[in-house]
Amino acid sequence: MNDWIEIGKLDDIPRRGARCIQTGSGRIAIFRTAEDRIFAIDDRCPHKGGPLSQGIVHGSQVTCPLHNWVFSLDTGLAQGADEGGVRTYSLQLHGDRILIDAQSLTALSAA
């Protein structure tokens, strides 16, 4: 059932940084941590829509560039006192190829 689509190479993303992929219904931010872990979340802060891909990445968290909410890349949940969360997506790393679960792209357009 699972259909994995390649979206790019690990080195396309700087360590402690992010890149985006465009989908029909919005941008997904792909993060790479200092330890080369990768995560995918919606590129839209639940607070006021800030582009999370533009934030500072620390540990496996990112700080939104607009008003400094901090999100866990793992769970997509806001940390500390802020409440809210963003959708997360499954990724796989095959060698240096980053793959995303195609279903998450289709599910998105169906939603």
């Binding site: 979206i7 396309d12 993303i13 992929i21 465009q22 989908t23 029909g24 219904s25 792209l105 289709t106």
Partner: peptide, 9 residues
Amino acid sequence: AMADFQMMQ
């Protein structure tokens, strides 16, 4: 952007 799937959708 790293990749664009808008067309695919």
